[in-house]
Design a protein around this nucleic acid. Structure first.
Lengths: 336, 336
DNA sequence: CCACAAAATGGGAGCGCTCCCAAGAGCATT
DNA sequence: AATGCTCTTGGGAGCGCTCCCATTTTGTGG
């Protein structure tokens, strides 16, 4: 791909060839005013002839703007990133960043070393801003967010931290809908499979569940905890089945765990939804593919990424956006 | 996060405070030789006291090294990125890049606009190198790879393009193993679900299948094509069931499609593996979770990402690595 | 035809760092 | 004490661009 290391032409060379000053050439490049049409044309032609591409780094140094933002995914195991949830967030964010002419730097902040590098990036203005996701209570990356020299937007509010800018979804509301749906289907003994207890997502969904149960005059089940993965959901469901009374409905804090629950139920000979109805959360592909297909709370994941990116782009541009909470809604399928 | 826009201290300020020249301070920063221990200590102290962080952009301009590489995911629909395959590649690559002190820029080259921005990044040396994935025959990003001013490593060889550096897996070998496994289980009418026909992955896996069939003296089935997604696998399986003779074994070019095939088979009342045995490719989580669990060809996806990144880091450092083909192996589970 | 405003122009000083190089310091050798 | 080395040291010239500002050119109305 690299051939003779012929240096890339510089703006000075363009200017010289076009017979104008570097300043004028620069103006054309940024299409600023105060350039006569003739010179503009000459510069444009020189650019074409020399196949000139402006050097981003030099521009970044001069303008103090990097033209890139970071997306930080926390979590000690990098495998958390395997959740398609993040892929969707990235797709959404990419769209918005493209519009703002910002590039995306992806930072998996799993190891201590990666966190050190991230700190450097954030403190040395290696990026113009950052989005943080999957941040847990007392997460080591919180410190980086605080020390950052650039604006930071959170995806989901981190537990125990008052994020100045965030985009979140209505987790509690969604969980409440899910539980109410189960109750409306005549279920009375509705159990819950929570996610990691030190995440606000999991807490909010638990809260929504409890509200719905209490409002219906029912006793909330003590939660089983998983880690948002399918196997952990399967295990949690197994634990739930040992309960007295046995649940006739289960709300799982995400689809992966709900799919795991489905697997355990199938393995134990229970029929879904006849014996136990199941609701998930996320509305990922797996919900549609699962057997039976999964009733779940839809959350607009791509939109979440998109809004985060837009908010950050606004912040970078000096605007003062306000935080956002996106709606969720129930999608009824075969599992209830 | 941003407070008073107090300017970050510069190296000059550090030097002044330490009572040394900027050059000396720079040497300490890059721990180069030719600095007396006393001065070194003084500089280090000044750095600490001023809470100094070197400006990456300035350094990049001076050294002509960006300290970042791009990972380009091609594909007109950004949804292709939802495949957990890419998440694993990224995890693998991140690990290696961390070691090389390189950041990761993620570029979803779906739209024309994103491609233009990518071209700029690659031509203006906005990154030190790039990894390309999911490149198809006559893919518009191929042009960008050719015009890039920086080294490019391919993940998987693009069809119809002789990539100078690539990391691939033994797709044909894996497909052959898969097919031979089916034959060893007594299947004789083995069908195939291919992926997108303009990808080398799909072609190589098809090739492996054909080799195995012909070697066994059997007539290869004409392939059904999918696009690597679950629903397309389900549809392809439905088409396959209309064939005469009906297959008693199916090799799907990836796990997603194999899972779709499983769904169709279940829906049509066929037992797996009794009536039809199924083998996938990838060994993603879905293979373990599927019912029945999926026999599949394991490919080292994280290693693929890791090796790509290492190769690219080597190239960036001026080394001359050679391309790599990673092995695959069969994992037998319940679907055969 | 001149005064004055507005637009166009290019010089130059950065942005913050690296790195070459000439000059100085320190030390051992003769 | 003079010579020759090696190790330190800091000055200065970039890296390629932006942007301020002083200067020149152009255009308008009296």
């Amino acid at each position: 791909m690299t051939d003779v290391p012929r240096r890339q032409p510089t703006l000075d060379e363009v200017a010289e060839r076009a017979g104008v000053s570097r300043s004028a050439a620069s103006r054309v490049l940024n299409n600023a005013p105060h350039v006569s049409p003739a010179k503009r044309a000459a510069v444009l032609r020189a650019i074409r002839e020399l196949d000139y591409v402006p050097n981003t780094t030099a521009r970044a140094l001069a303008t103090r703007q990097r033209g890139a933002v970071a997306l930080v995914i926390s979590g000690e195991a990098p495998s958390i990133f395997a959740d398609p949830f993040f892929a969707k967030v990235i797709v959404g964010a990419s769209g918005a960043l493209e519009g703002a002419d910002l590039h995306l730097m992806l930072c998996l902040a799993a190891s201590e070393r990666s966190r050190r590098r991230l700190a450097e990036l954030l403190r040395a203005r290696g990026v113009d801003g950052a989005m943080f996701m999957a941040v847990r209570e007392n997460d080591p990356v919180l410190h980086l967010a605080r020390e950052a020299e650039v604006p930071v937007v959170f995806g989901g509010r981190p537990a125990g931290f008052d994020a100045p800018w965030f985009v979140d979804v209505d987790n509690a509301g969604g969980a409440r809908q899910a539980t109410e749906h189960l109750l409306a289907r005549g279920r009375r003994r509705v159990g819950i499979i929570c996610g990691l207890p030190d995440t606000e997502v999991s807490r909010a969904r638990h809260r929504g569940y409890r509200e719905a149960m209490i409002l219906a005059g029912l006793q909330p089940f003590p939660p089983e905890y998983g880690d948002f993965t399918e196997p952990s959901g399967a295990a949690a469901m197994a634990a739930l089945l040992k309960r007295q009374p046995e649940p006739d409905g289960v709300f799982a804090a995400n689809d992966n765990m709900a799919a795991g629950a489905l697997r355990t139920l199938r393995g134990s000979g229970r029929a879904v939804p006849a014996d136990v109805a199941v609701v998930g959360f996320d509305d990922l592909d797996i919900a549609r593919i699962a057997e039976p297909s999964l009733t779940t709370v839809h959350q607009p994941i791509e939109a979440l990424g998109n809004e985060m990116a837009r908010m950050l782009a606004g912040l970078v541009a000096g605007e003062d956006p306000s935080s956002l909470i996106l709606p969720t809604h129930l999608v009824a399928r075969a599992s209830t």
